[in-house]
């Protein structure tokens, strides 16, 4: 990778904003963080979020409401989203790993790909672990992997020093055209490795996660344990909504006028009782425990890992924060290991 020294990430952001819609996560001053459109004239300091925002990059590509087609009574008309070139600025390694996971899952989905192919990804390495993260355990971070982003920002332990900018793709290289940057002189590989060690130490051994994955794949978790967890699942859909790799959806048909209609797809959740229920009433995953088991097996099961060459969990910890029943990833793994 080519490495540059970057005095101000805001300069890069403004440069990209000349040709793209640039989105960045900003705090709302009340404890919330949201993706916001940033203009080329916006020089607000770039501060990578210390905690993952509730929404990852997922909704930019796998839209929460996506129009699929219209029907006018006689013909069906496909619709594809018209997406202006856009930049997601400042994505953490965990969320970029999730984008890669979904790129693979939705490789043949025209709606996803239309949005994805219009997007340049600018990643940022983490110097410190977020509160509930465990990227070092599932191998998704804290350093952005080369194939996961187009450009990678590396902050420095010494805040007074310039940032590093790594060029990770052809598109990233092309996007820098017109921006003059000096080549980096620092030993950035060594710095990144040191950062990784630091974050891994902060995250600790996370033994319950490591042991929980083993138990889950060894089939050591009995149905009673899953049902006990299921009793704590309110079926809110918060985990599947915020999970950056969750991808289930449902169709929603709407009659517009007599004989004309449109179909949208909307995010769905495998934790709903009705998710698999058939018209006959038969339900292959009738109990909450079965559904909770399904969710976690999808994230940590060896069978899925073999298909995707990665866990479905990127270690961001959003499920822990959003679950009212206390059965996010740490909650589940602690109970699973404890019961074992």
């Amino acid at each position: 990778m080519q490495a540059y020294s970057l005095d101000q990430p805001e300069r890069l952001r403004a440069h990209l904003a000349l040709q793209h819609h640039v989105y960045e996560v900003r705090g709302d001053g009340q404890g919330g963080q949201h993706w916001e459109l940033v203009s080329a004239r916006d020089f607000t300091a770039f501060e990578p979020a210390a905690e993952p925002p509730p929404f990852s990059a997922k909704s930019f590509f796998f839209a929460e409401r996506e129009l699929l087609f219209r029907f006018d009574g006689g013909q069906f008309y496909s619709t594809l989203p018209a997406v202006e070139p856009q930049v997601l600025f400042g994505l953490h390694a965990c969320d970029l790993q999730a984008v890669a996971y979904q790129d693979r899952f939705f490789a043949e989905d025209p709606h996803y790909q239309a949005r994805r192919q219009a997007t340049l990804l600018v990643g940022v390495d983490c110097l410190h672990s977020c509160e509930g993260g465990f990227c070092s355990i599932v191998g998704s971070g804290p350093a952005v992997r080369e194939q996961r982003a187009d450009l990678i920002l590396v902050p420095r332990q010494d805040h007074a020093t310039d940032w590093l900018l790594l060029v990770a793709s052809e598109a990233g290289h092309a996007a820098l055209r017109g921006l003059r940057l000096p080549e980096a002189t620092a030993d950035w590989q060594a710095e990144r490795s040191a950062n990784q060690v630091c974050v891994a130490e902060e995250q600790g051994p996370q033994q319950e996660i490591v042991d929980g994955i083993v138990s889950l794949n060894a089939g050591k978790i009995d149905a009673e344990t899953w049902e006990a967890l299921g009793l704590r699942c309110l079926g809110c859909s918060g985990c599947t909504t915020e999970c950056p790799t969750c991808s289930c959806y449902a169709p929603q048909d709407r009659l517009n006028a007599p004989a004309s209609m449109q179909r949208e797809r909307v995010w769905d959740s495998c934790l709903y009782q009705g998710f698999q229920q058939e018209a006959s009433g038969h339900n292959p995953s009738a109990t909450p425990g079965q559904r909770v088991q399904r969710f976690w097996s999808h994230k940590f099961g060896d069978g899925f890992k073999a298909q995707f060459e990665a866990y479905g969990c990127v270690g961001c910890g959003r499920c822990d924060r959003v679950c009212p029943g206390g059965i996010g990833v740490h909650g589940v793994m602690q109970r699973v290991v404890h019961h074992d």
């Binding site: 919330g32 509730p54 809110c236 909504t241 009212p324």
Partner: peptide, 19 residues
């Protein structure tokens, strides 16, 4: 309105919502 986000800093819901 295409969806909602919880507010992590909210004193009542603390970043969570129900179905």
């Amino acid at each position: 309105v295409i969806g909602v986000e919880p507010q992590p800093g909210h004193p009542v819901s603390q970043g969570q919502l129900c179905s």
